[in-house]
Nucleic acid binder design. Structure first.
Length: 948
RNA sequence: GCGGAUGUGGCGAAAUUGGUAGACGCACUAGACUUAGGAUCUAGCGCCGCAAGGUGUGUGGGUUCGAGUCCCUCCAUCCGCACCA
């Protein structure tokens, strides 16, 4: 082998690593641990594209680096194998989703192996494997078996709750539970029939069944979690979603709202991601105030964060879904209110969001009494009030809330200003804090002070109390789907009971079809004998996609354990993830739920950490670049880009008519120009020029089509967007590897720019990276291609170069700045080539520091250098400061801040001497025109600045 | 509307505490070697200018001997949230 033969080198070492199990990891108490994790992929039918490995490459570089630094590194990979596409495919073809999934996983693994990752495949997991989901079910049972005690602020076994009930009822219990939980005594509890007891316990359990309004997606036949719905459409598939009340399994994540919030302080995530979670949790501190309704015994409770503005309340508003609306409507207003409520209810979530600006509402005819000022205010119904947040009742303060302001102005309701300085303003809501006015006993107080005073007063009068609200809801945990984890419960007299642990895993039954049943039940309704002990029905829904990924970070530590979800020993050694890399799209889904489950497991003493991921990096997506062809709708003629551009600019069609005559020898058929943009496979396009022959073969119905060219070429349109099969813009890493090799792909993806940044895939610079590897190879080989390194002592210059690069490589990896590292390798190789230097010690260091990025070529050179064992077991070289210190330094000299000259000085020369020497220089005299300087600033090793 | 970011050559991008802006790579130009080259090597390459020089990090201002970097204003783009009381 004389030249750098990528393919054989890479295949050889991938084979070697596999055979020697080089990356197999086990607990080693003699070494510090490091856990680097990637967000595992869902194995889709389209295979990996070049965007997927971006984060994987980064974490692989860190893993390899940490190994060389003496850490025991856990770097696993697995598959998020439950999911909709496989199920959809099953519905369409009748093939069991497990088969599709298995096939896709095999392809993914093959692709991953081609890139040369240092995964320990012995710890691979698949969430759809019964041996795995057995433990997902087991954790579900632990949640079912727990309640949240506010006194100790942690999850506790339900048995302890029962003990309390037996002894003292529930009056003293401070638990997170359903709002409608009644108070009962020990006696009452003891006399309750078992069924009623179970019913009550469900109100406390951390997983429970409830009738809730859910996001129902009719097209998919399932419910979706809030974070799976975007703008009224499903995140996956983009189908419309409606609100519907259904019986569902729920996760009481709200119990952890505060701890999920506080925990953010101690983890190293980006501020923007933490903010997303904070907003999602949406904690707001405020109070509830009771408004008595005039001529009625009804009291309406409103939630507010600004009780200080109580004297500015001029009306009360209810959500259209509020259950007391009927009782609160006078006969005179009944028709109007009914009509309004009807319209508001029928409006889809999406419509309601679409026109936020439109003000609408209706007066009920009743009045309420302000609990503090005792004034009577009208009660309205308006759809800007949400039933799901707070109490569904809002106290309208037009002078300090802009929605209330808009509403009041629209309906001519009075506006009372309560903040000093807002009285004369056109829009008083712009100033939200200040001294209180027109506000009775709180006049003159600052808002913050007034808030406190009003709450105290309300409490004293018995008309209010402090209250904390969260936007976050309990998570819906049911999916009306087949391809997910079965819920490990059975039903007896309508109530759920947990399966005993010995019955786990509860495996998915075989069914003949994967669609919902005719009666609208989930697919599991088709299973025969889907019963516990042949008599009690199992649950028909399955768990959502995120169930398995909530805790997978623990399973990798001990993937084959069938005694526990993870052994204590393994978990306490590996603790949690040191570096987690993945996309930002999971901000309020996976990343939140996973924290929730980890905290729960911690509470129950099952793990030793209460956060799953210490450090999180969100890698930016690599987007694709799609190409389009433009087809005239009626004529069927494909027109080149500039024609389409002119049509879309609305220019006249004479130009097109002319092209028709000259190129096609006929007139335009259809003067109404409708242009269809059609995606075209990017492999048929080079530099936006379409290969027409290839296109005709690819799209048979275009075989006889005519093309209108510009300058003899057909130019395609382009757009940067997400890579997807349907856009024909997917770049397969295998193709890149075939052409350039895995090392080039790895280096190039890092070289492309900062990891966090979004960027389109383009191969413009990939040659440069490839050339770099070839130059590296040539450093070790003479012109005949023979391996040759010298054992002469290295030159000082070479040592400087290599030590500088070692330092840079180390710092860059530790700062996750991979792109600049690649540049510094290039500089290093260029300089060593120019010297030239083929010293063994220098080259050995070079190979080592490059090895995390380009492991294949590094391994090859490592062995050529005479090493027997894999480079993985080597030690990262350390740099020596003495080689980095220059003895002479070139100072830029500036006059009045303007760079004028460069002068060399000995590094250890005192500042005064430098100053003297500079001022004595003839050249500088010229610049300063001989004037004596006001100041001379010498910044050691930076600059000399003369101010005149 | 609110929150978070980001604006630097033809392009991807660098730039420790404020200290020679544009490292490195691509593209481009010229040259060398070659039967050839989509190979390799050498040199050049922000903009204006023959040059000296001037000018230059989205806009306008400020602090400083000195600002891509710090402070204020505005503009643009991207992401997230969105009637949350």
């Amino acid at each position: 082998m004389t030249e750098y033969d990528v393919q054989s080198i890479e295949k050889k070492w991938q084979q070697y690593w596999k055979e020697h199990q080089v990356y197999k990891t086990s607990i080693d108490l003699s070494k510090p641990k490091y856990y680097a994790l990637d967000m595992f992929p869902y194995p889709s039918g389209a295979g990996l594209h070049v965007g997927h490995p971006l984060g994987y490459i980064a974490s692989d570089i860190v893993s390899r680096y940490k190994r060389l630094k003496g850490y025991n590194v856990l770097h696993p990979m697995g598959f998020d194998a439950f999911g909709l596409p496989a199920e959809q495919y099953a519905i369409d073809t009748g093939q069991h989703p497990a088969i599709t999934t298995e096939k896709n996983i095999r392809r993914y693994k093959e692709q991953l192996e081609n890139i040369g990752f240092s995964y320990d495949w012995s710890q691979e997991i698949q969430t759809s494997a019964p041996a795995y989901y057995r433990w997902t079910q087991w954790i579900f049972l632990q949640l079912f078996d727990s309640w949240y005690d506010r006194k100790t602020d942690k999850a506790v076994p339900i048995k302890e709750l029962i003990d309390i009930f037996v002894k003292e009822g529930n009056a003293s219990v401070q638990a997170v539970c359903d709002e409608d939980t009644p108070v009962f005594t020990a006696e009452a509890w003891q006399q309750m029939p078992e069924q009623e007891q179970q019913q009550l316990l469900l109100k406390y359990r951390l997983t429970y069944i409830d009738d809730v309004v859910v996001n129902w997606c009719p097209a998919m036949g399932t419910v979706l979690a809030n974070d799976e719905v975007k703008d009224g459409f499903s995140e996956r598939g983009g189908y419309p979603v409606e609100r519907k009340k259904m019986k569902q399994w729920m996760m009481r994540i709200t119990a952890y709202a505060d701890r999920l919030l506080e925990g953010l302080e101690k983890i190293d995530w980006t501020e923007s991601l933490k903010d997303m979670q904070r907003h999602w949790i949406g904690k707001s501190n405020g109070c509830e105030l009771d408004f008595a309704v005039q001529d009625s015994d009804i009291t309406l409770t409103a939630f507010t964060t600004r009780p200080d503005t109580i004297f500015g309340v001029t009306y009360l508003t209810l959500a259209p879904e509020h259950e007391l609306i009927d009782a609160l409507t006078t006969s005179g207003q009944k028709n109007e209110v009914d009509a309004y409520v009807q319209v508001a209810k029928n409006r889809s979530e999406r419509d309601r969001m679409a026109d936020v600006k439109t003000v609408s509402g209706v007066f009920t005819g009743h009045y309420a009494i302000n609990p503090i000022s005792r004034e009577a205010i009208p009660i309205w119904v308006a759809d800007y009030v949400l039933a799901g947040y707070g109490t569904g009742v809002v106290m309208g303060v037009p002078s300090s809330d802009d929605r209330d302001f808009r509403f009041a102005r629209h309906f001519g309701l009075p506006i009372v200003t309560v903040i000093e300085g807002t009285e004369t303003l056109e829009d008083p809501t712009v100033k939200k804090h200040g001294k209180m006015i027109h506000s009775g006993f709180i006049n003159g107080m600052e808002s913050t002070e007034a808030i406190q005073a009003v709450v105290e007063k309300a409490e004293a009068l018995g008309v209010g109390k402090p209250k904390i609200n969260y936007k976050m809801r309990d998570a819906v945990f049911s999916r009306q789907r087949y391809w997910g984890e079965p819920v490990p419960v059975y039903f007896k007299e309508g109530l759920p009971y947990p399966l005993p642990e010995t019955a786990l895993p509860l495996e998915l039954p075989a069914i003949d079809e994967y669609k919902p049943t005719e009666s609208g039940e989930p697919p599991l309704g088709r299973a025969t004998d889907w019963k516990y002990q042949n008599q009690y029905s199992y649950e028909l829904t399955t768990m959502p996609g995120w169930a398995g990924s909530n805790w997978y970070h623990f399973r990798y530590m001990d993937a084959h354990n069938d005694e526990a979800f993870v052994s204590k020993r393994a978990q306490s050694y590996w603790e949690n993830v040191d570096l987690y890399i993945g996309g930002t799209e999971h901000a309020t889904g996976h990343l939140l739920y996973s924290r929730f489950w980890t905290k729960f497991l911690y509470d129950r003493g099952l793990v030793t950490v209460d956060e799953p991921y210490k450090k999180l990096i969100n890698q930016g997506m690599i987007q694709g670049r799609s190409n389009f062809v433009y087809r005239l709708a009626k004529d069927g003629v494909y027109i080149s880009k500039s024609f389409s551009d002119r049509i879309s600019r609305g220019e006249d069609i004479i130009f097109l008519q002319k092209e028709y005559r000259s190129q096609l020898n006929r007139e335009l058929n259809n003067p109404k120009l409708i242009v269809n943009d059609i995606y075209v496979d990017i492999n048929l396009v080079k530099d936006d020029v379409l290969n027409i022959e290839a296109f005709k073969q690819w799209k048979p119905d275009a075989a006889d089509a005519e093309f209108l060219l510009e300058n003899g070429k057909y130019i395609c349109g382009s757009e940067v967007e997400k890579m997807s099969k349907s856009k024909y813009n997917v770049v397969n890493p295998d193709d890149v590897i075939e052409q350039y090799g895995a090392d080039t792909l790895r280096l190039y993806e890092m070289f492309l720019g900062p990891l966090e940044q979004f960027k389109p895939w383009n191969t413009n610079g990939i040659d440069g990276v490839f050339k770099f590897l070839r130059k590296l190879w040539r450093l070790f080989h003479d012109e005949a291609g023979n391996f040759t390194v010298s054992d002469e002592p290295p030159s000082g210059e070479a040592l400087k170069v290599i030590h500088r690069t070692i330092k840079k490589a180390q710092e860059d990896i530790e700062n996750y700045s991979f792109n600049t590292s690649v540049s510094s390798f290039m500089i290093c190789v260029n300089e060593l080539t120019a010297m030239p230097c083929n010293n063994r010690q220098v080259l050995t260091d070079l190979v080592l520091i490059i090895s995390p990025y380009a492991p294949h070529i590094a391994e090859e050179l490592w062995h050529k250098l005479g090493n027997q064992d894999s480079i993985v077991h080597a030690v990262f070289p350390s740099y020596d400061e003495q080689y980095l210190i220059e003895s002479v330094y070139e100072y830029p000299v500036s006059v009045n801040g303007k760079m004028r000259a460069k002068m060399k000085f000995a590094l250890d020369m005192p500042k005064d001497d430098i100053e003297k020497q500079v001022l004595a220089s003839e050249q500088i005299q010229k610049w300063t025109e001989g004037k004596p300087p006001k100041r001379v600033i010498v910044v050691p090793q930076k600059i000399v600045n003369i101010v005149i």
